[in-house]
Design a protein around this nucleic acid. Structure first.
Length: 781
RNA sequence: GCCGACGUGGCGGAACUGGCAUACGCGCAGGACUUAGAAUCCUGUGGUCGCAAGACCUUGGAGGUUCAACUCCUCUCGUCGGCACCA
């Protein structure tokens, strides 16, 4: 008998599968019963495959392998979100071109993933840094520009002094750069933005169409932040001014209680209200405005404990009562949200109350006797219905090297022009110095004159290229479309190919992508649909999230904590099958789980036992005798796996397999076992989980001649519904809900018989008897 | 502050639609094999009391609904995640 040696077994089959191109070239195949399975676009980091990658990819691989065996046409592609800052930072530090480090990293990942036994279709592999890919990223940009959804906008933007790049508000985490952690400061720049807000209602409403976790939908909803309310017009009481301040409120019914109005510093400046400020207020107001303009969002947040503000000395006319209410400036009001003006109702709002108390503003108690509807109807000249959104347009310009160049040119005569389709892609020029310019402009500013200057497509004159590149979120907002037709040179993907596979049926992404990536990909889908390229509204029909794999200490894995588990080492020691089964056995897919080396060894033991039982059984030492009890367990296991696998409940499926092996082991000790046909079923059941071992069991002993083909191309077994029927059932007998005993009875037994038998456990007369078929009898006395 | 999750043995977890709580694995204890160890196999393993038969308790805590609650309801404590002067 051969010992279980995963190294030998796995090396043999990984080579065979590669030679046979198992599961390759699936995109062009017929898709009669299609299933598009997708794992989140991965960044090819230099540190290689992480156990945290193994979990979700293995989960989808098990699902894919099962689905193929169950007769589905499975499309399971892979690719790389290859542009990005880490490679660029590394290049700045070492001078090694990001294209090289990225390519090396991708090769390393490819090898590791193949070794884990992930059944990706590599023939549609893509990388966003490949010109054949970013040509279409640029093309989509030009389409958005032509549709008026890509536009220039000047304004205050988040500026990371370390990365020398602009960050979207949504990419600033706690006032710090999402990627490097440096405190973000404010800077004014001209940028390209995508008008995602054009789709805000649809992005909200279409969430009803998809099968996503509710908490994910809710987070998308909250991010878009639609709130129905009203706009209130306040007029400056200075006679010489016609200025109207509009403020948004969701509580128009509290209007009577307004005793002051607060305006954002930027808004105050923008409206030129300084001209109306009285002499005695000039100095403090000017000082406050100056201080506010130097504050970053981070500093404004720190000011949370103590609200600041300044009286402008100006008053506004209350639209309902005609009273004069003071206008204050405070930086807790943000100009980017709503109208940048807030009405203060200190009697009802806690924050307003705190502000009023601090600055001695009046507080007016009110009764809410008019509804919003009535107010809107009675005073249409000052109140109007308004819907406000939290969502802002998507700022995509980046002052970076390692990204797709924005395909735009600027001509003094014709302004901004999109690069014509025939001139795409605008190739990213080779540079030796990847740093931004000293004054913070894009690295591409340092490209050759030939690259930087071109001909204006409109007038034929001299035009300068845009030197900014695109946010990498742009690259990853359409990659799932490209997979269907990854080598197409004339379209981003043909309509036939997209119709065949899209939308994505099952998408697995980490919880970190719940808001931004999903929102952007959904926006692109809706835009391309409106341009006539797609015929569906939502890109990802069903979605699940994987949990985090924590270190053995229960904490997030990190180099500094020294709790990082390297998948290569696990494979070296126990094999890929053990790694796969262990990671799926740890717990439910969406939960965070801590690594446990002891349990890894337990899984290895489990697979070893299978291999040794298999060999004993296959040799015929058990006389190829069937075992009725074992057959029953086998069919029950088929049923359990057939239910668990489509739901991606791998931990309970593996537990069921372990139970089967325990029964098999007992049977083997009695010199009984599976018939050859049943043995083949066991290999099939094992195939999605431990693909190498299953293949070895299926065709390990056959030479090239008479090869039965791969286990992974076999049909998933069906259970016999009659075989799984038990002839006898055990009932628990409860008295007043507490278990007092149990009995066994024929499963065909009548209710009366069951009751009668249960009653022997008590003396006296019961008040009530409840019989739960096949489970228990509860006697109430 | 707001929103969303989640609390089950020593540990990871199971329990489907309200129906025997603790499946499966780890760990631990004892045993077999062995010169010894490793490996493997077998047995036991929620807690308390008890020689035992058994009794009582147990899903963060307190109540409630129900013949029956890990599951539903109310309150409460704790942990994690997301968002935030969002009007």
């Amino acid at each position: 008998m051969k010992p279980y040696d995963p190294k030998v077994i796995e090396a043999k089959w990984v080579k065979k599968w590669r030679e046979d191109k198992l599961f390759q070239g699936t995109a062009v195949k017929k898709a009669t019963d299609k299933l598009y399975i997708l794992y989140a676009f991965a960044y090819p980091s230099g540190s290689g495959l992480h156990v945290g990658h193994v979990e979700p990819t293995t989960a989808l691989d098990m699902y894919a392998r099962y689905s193929r065996m169950a007769g589905k046409d499975v499309f399971f592609p892979v690719g790389w979100d290859a542009f990005g800052l880490p490679a660029e930072n590394y290049a700045i530090k070492t001078g090694i071109h990001p294209a090289k480090t990225t390519k090396d990293a991708i090769h390393a990942f490819e090898k590791q993933i193949e070794r884990v036994g992930i059944s990706y279709d590599w023939e549609t592999e893509i990388a966003t840094c490949h010109p054949g890919y970013y040509k279409w990223t640029q093309w989509i940009f030009t389409q958005l520009f032509k549709a008026g959804l890509a536009y220039r906008d000047k304004g205050w933007v988040n500026w990371c002094p370390a990365d020398k790049t602009v960050l979207a508000n949504e990419q600033v985490v706690e006032g710090k750069c999402e990627r490097c952690g440096t405190a973000v400061i404010q800077k004014e720049l001209e940028q390209w933005k995508f008008k995602i807000t054009a789709y805000q209602d649809e992005l909200l409403d279409d969430l009803d169409q998809v099968n996503w976790p509710n908490s994910t939908k809710l987070q998308q909803k909250n991010w878009i932040g639609r709130s129905e309310g009203a706009e209130v017009s306040f007029q400056l009481s200075v006679i010489s001014s016609e200025q109207i301040l509009k403020c948004f409120t969701t509580r128009l019914d509290t209007i009577e209680g307004v005793t002051f109005v607060v305006i954002a510093p930027e808004k105050f400046r923008e409206m030129g209200l300084m001209d109306n400020v009285g002499a005695s207020f000039m100095t403090p107001v000017q000082e406050y405005l100056d201080a506010a303009s130097h504050k970053t969002e981070e500093q404004r947040r720190v000011g949370e404990k103590e609200k600041t503000g300044v009286d402008t000395g100006l008053t506004l006319i209350h639209p309902l009562t005609g009273e004069e209410v003071p206008l204050w400036i405070a930086d807790y009001v943000l100009s980017g949200f709503g109208t940048g003006v807030v009405m203060g109702v200190p009697s009802l709002d806690e924050r307003d109350s705190a502000f009023a108390k601090k600055f001695g503003l009046p507080i007016k108690e009110i009764s809410l006797d008019k509804t919003v509807g009535q107010l809107l109807k009675e005073h249409p000249e000052v109140f109007s219905k308004k819907t406000n959104y939290k969502l802002r347009d998507w700022l995509i310009s980046r002052q970076r090297y390692w990204g797709a160049p924005i395909p735009m040119t600027f001509c003094n005569k014709c302004g901004w022009q999109a690069v014509p389709d025939k001139d795409l892609p605008v190739l990213l020029p080779e540079l030796e110095d990847f740093k931004p310019t000293d004054d913070g402009r894009s690295p591409l500013e340092k490209a050759s004159e030939e690259w930087k200057y071109t001909i204006c497509p409109e007038c034929g004159g001299k035009a300068k290229r845009e030197v900014d590149t695109m946010d990498t979120f742009v690259d990853s907002s359409w990659y799932f479309l490209r997979y269907t037709d990854a080598r197409n040179e004339t379209e981003f993907a043909s309509k036939e190919q997209m119709k065949k596979w899209l939308p994505v049926d099952t998408y697995l992404i980490g919880p970190e992508h719940i808001v931004l990536h999903l929102l952007y990909a959904r926006f692109f889908t809706k835009f391309l649909r409106d341009q006539g390229y797609l015929d569906f509204d939502e890109p990802f029909m069903k979605m699940r999230h994987q949990g985090m794999i924590l270190g053995p200490d229960g904490k997030k894995m990190s180099k500094s904590k020294g709790n990082v588990i390297n998948p290569d080492e696990i494979i070296e020691k126990f094999g890929a099958d053990t790694l796969r089964v262990y990671e799926m056995f740890m717990g439910p897919l969406d939960a965070d789980k801590a690594w446990d080396m002891g349990s890894v060894a337990g899984v290895y033991r489990f697979l070893s036992r299978i291999y040794s039982l298999f060999q004993t059984n296959a040799k015929g030492d058990l006389g190829n005798k069937g075992d009725k009890g074992l057959t029953k367990k086998l069919h029950k296991t088929i049923k359990k796996l057939t239910e668990d696998l489509p739901q991606m409940r791998f931990n309970t499926a593996i537990a069921a397999l372990m139970e089967l092996v325990n029964v098999w082991s007992e049977s083997s000790a009695q010199h009984a076992g599976f018939t050859p046909e049943e043995l083949e079923i066991v290999a099939k059941l094992l195939a999605p989980f431990a693909p190498y071992l299953a293949e070895e069991m299926h065709r390990g002993n056959t030479g090239d001649e008479g090869d039965k083909g791969s286990i992974h191309e076999q049909k998933w077994p069906e259970y016999d519904p009659i075989l799984i029927e038990d002839e006898e059932v055990e009932y628990a007998v409860q008295v007043n809900g507490k278990v007092k005993g149990r009995f066994t009875i024929a499963s065909s037994a009548h209710k009366d018989e069951i009751q009668e038998k249960a009653l022997t456990f008590i003396s006296g007369k019961p008040k009530k008897i409840i019989v739960v078929p096949r489970r228990l009898v509860n006697i109430v006395v």
